[in-house]
């Protein structure tokens, strides 16, 4: 019974919905809602990586590059091309998918760590372009993002953005859970365990990895678009290498392959730095220490370790 609940799709979604519903009740000010919205946005990006890393076992070290593409699409589209912000948002996500396809297609035929290296290079290039093409992107100083209106309704304010980002996260979580329990998800998890055996039952391993990579890039693109629209301002920092590493760290700290893990990992690396600012110059050191402590005691990640703990004791 307990085991069934811990592993059920619906239970995961209900739990997430419950957390989303409770946070605004407990939040003492709109500042907390802003932080929570950031948690949902980065959780969405981490969810994409969960599909890529957790299901298919492939690492991307340049996912912030897709975050950047999605973010700059909603900034540059309306400002330079006169496009509708909402259209720009969807175009940005689609562009991420296309770019991932172009980058991944030649790379994912090769076995080994080529994707990690290729995405690393890709991320650096995106950051470089955003920095140096100042005429379009605004350069290192960043760029203003036009407010978005839906059916004449201006989307602004901490509360509104809280619900928009939470809704996006719920959709992202539902899709990620769909994949996990589907024929495609089975083949992804299979090739993660043994590419030889997956190929041996007819799985087109390269094509499956590519599909996972494209989907994960679209997740990051959507997250980037939301981030830019919510903040109303964006800098090339969004696409930085450190940010890519942070996304990977979120997945690992939360529990690779776990949907709730991506959310917990995002909360960990979004909330803790805010909370630790009171430590001033010790902030980074304490954050690093905490990450190490968690990885030593919960090596499978927070959610996966807890799940294992419950399942091992379930009758």
């Amino acid at each position: 019974m307990l085991a069934a609940v811990v592993t059920s799709r619906l239970a995961t979604l209900l739990f997430l919905a419950l957390v989303i519903a409770v946070v605004p009740v407990l939040a003492p000010s709109s500042f907390y809602l802003r932080v929570a919205s950031l948690v949902w946005i980065f959780a969405l990006a981490a969810l994409g990586l969960t599909i890529l890393m957790g299901y298919a076992g492939q690492v991307s070290l340049g996912h912030a590059g897709f975050l950047g593409i999605g973010a700059y699409a909603v900034a540059v589209g309306p400002a330079r091309l006169g496009l509708d912000p909402l259209l720009s948002f969807f175009l940005g996500a689609a562009l991420c998918g296309l770019v991932a396809y172009a980058v991944g297609k030649p790379i994912l035929r090769l076995k080994g760590y080529y994707l990690a290296i290729a995405t690393l290079g890709f991320g650096l290039i995106v950051a470089l372009v955003l920095h140096s093409e100042a005429a379009v992107t605004g350069g290192p100083d960043g760029i203003q993002v036009a407010r978005i209106t839906l059916f004449g309704w201006r989307i602004s304010g901490a509360t509104t953005w809280y619900w928009v980002t939470a809704g996006a996260l719920m959709i992202g979580a539902a899709l990620a859970l769909n994949i996990a329990a589907s024929p495609s998800g089975r083949t992804l998890r299979a090739l993660h365990d043994s590419e030889v055996a997956a190929t041996g039952v007819g799985v087109d391993v390269a094509a499956r990895k590519l599909a996972a990579f494209v989907v994960s890039a679209v997740y990051a693109g959507v997250a980037g678009g939301l981030l830019a629209l919510m903040n109303g301002f964006i800098t090339p920092e969004t696409a930085s290498f450190m940010h890519s590493i942070e996304l990977v760290a979120m997945v690992i700290i939360g529990g690779t392959g776990s949907v709730l893990g991506a959310v917990v990992g995002s909360a960990f690396l979004t909330v803790l730095p805010q909370a630790l600012t009171i430590l001033q110059e010790y902030e980074q050191a304490v954050l690093g220490l905490l990450i190490m402590v968690f990885m030593i005691f919960l090596p499978a990640g927070i959610v996966s370790s807890l799940k294992r703990f419950v399942l091992d004791r379930a009758p």
Partner: peptide, 17 residues
């Protein structure tokens, strides 16, 4: 997984449940 060649759903159908 061994049965997957006879499975008819696409990646997108799987994604959208």
């Amino acid at each position: 997984v061994g049965c997957h060649l006879s499975e008819k759903t696409s990646f997108l159908a799987d994604l959208f449940g």
